[in-house]
Amino acid sequence: MPDTSAFLAPVTALTDLVLPAATARLILLANHVLSSAPAATERLKAHAGRALHIEVEGWRLPLPTPPALTLCITPAGLLESPDVGAAEPVADLRLRMDLSQPLEVMRRLAAGELPPVRVEGDATLAADVSWVIANVRWDVAADVERLFGPLVAEGMSRVSGQALAAARSVMQGVAGLRRS
């Protein structure tokens, strides 16, 4: 196997710079999506103060493995990072995403599905988080319409639908080639 350390050093340095900002944006997006689903925040409010630990398994890309992420549930039923400098909270629930087959993960995402996620920990919290994962989706079209108006949103929806159909077709073709 070739030595990738010379390639990975700058990638790791860049990751260390970008990761905190990307994590903060991911949490903002997750909270935006949760806020649009009152049933989801109601379910999560009952678990305020509990911690979720999210990990990636089976990473095979020639890039650093995404680090584990710990999130705490707020009294509002939203998510936040633990306080900087505080001890890492003990995870009440672990979510492990299997990314060992990147093409299959991309195919599932293109089909509107989630990658395989293994949930371990408190049964009640696991049931509510599993419900949120299964039932809450980002309504991108509604956000685009709010920002740009219905005419632009309709055009973007049409274009993104065509792009998604093309991506599905490519992924089905790749899957068919792999089976042959």
Results as ranks from 00 to 15, higher is better:
Ile73Gly: 13
Thr74Ala: 01
Leu93Ser: 08
Met171Leu: 12
Ala39Thr: 09
Pro89Tyr: 01
Ala6Arg: 13
Gly112Gln: 06
Trp138Phe: 11
Arg43Val: 12
Pro67Lys: 09
Arg96Tyr: 06
Pro66Asp: 00
Leu93Thr: 07
Glu42Asp: 15
Ser100Asn: 07
Gly161His: 03
Ala48Asp: 08
Leu34Ile: 10
Thr74Tyr: 04
Arg50Gly: 13
Leu69Trp: 15
Pro20Ala: 01
Ile73Gln: 10
Val136Phe: 06
Pro62Ala: 09
Trp59Met: 04
Leu34Asn: 11
Ser157Pro: 06
Trp59Leu: 04
Leu63Arg: 03
Val129Glu: 11
Ser100His: 01
Ile133Asp: 06
Leu26Gly: 12
Arg60Leu: 07
Pro64Gln: 11
Leu103Lys: 02
Arg96Ile: 15
Leu177Glu: 04
Leu14Lys: 05
Ala166Pro: 09
Gly161Tyr: 00
Trp131Ser: 04
Leu164Ile: 07
Glu88Pro: 14
Ala22Trp: 02
Arg107Ser: 07
Leu78Asn: 02
Arg60Val: 12
Gly176Met: 05
Asp128Lys: 06
Val90Gln: 15
Pro89Lys: 05
Pro2Ile: 11
Met1Asn: 13
Phe7Glu: 02
Ala166Cys: 13
Glu88Asp: 12
Leu125Thr: 13
Val170Cys: 00
Arg158Ser: 15
Ala37His: 14
Ala51Trp: 06
Ser36Gln: 15
Ala153Asn: 11
Val33Gly: 02
Ala163Met: 15
Ala39Val: 10
Asp128Trp: 12
Glu104Cys: 11
Ala126Glu: 14
Asn135Cys: 02
Arg178Trp: 05
Arg94Glu: 12
Val117Asp: 03
Arg137Lys: 15
Thr12Ser: 07
Leu17Asn: 01
Val174Met: 08
Asp98Ile: 05
Arg108Leu: 11
Pro150Ser: 01
Arg94Ala: 10
Ala127Arg: 15
Pro20Asp: 04
Pro62Arg: 12
Glu154His: 11
Pro115Ile: 04
Gly85Arg: 02
Ala142Tyr: 00
Glu55Thr: 15
Val84Gly: 03
Asp92His: 12
Ala86Asp: 05
Leu63Ser: 00
Ser180Pro: 05
Glu57Arg: 14
Ala123Val: 14
Arg50Cys: 10
Ala51Ile: 08
Ala167Cys: 03
Trp131Arg: 11
Val84Thr: 05
Ala6Met: 08
Pro38Ala: 14
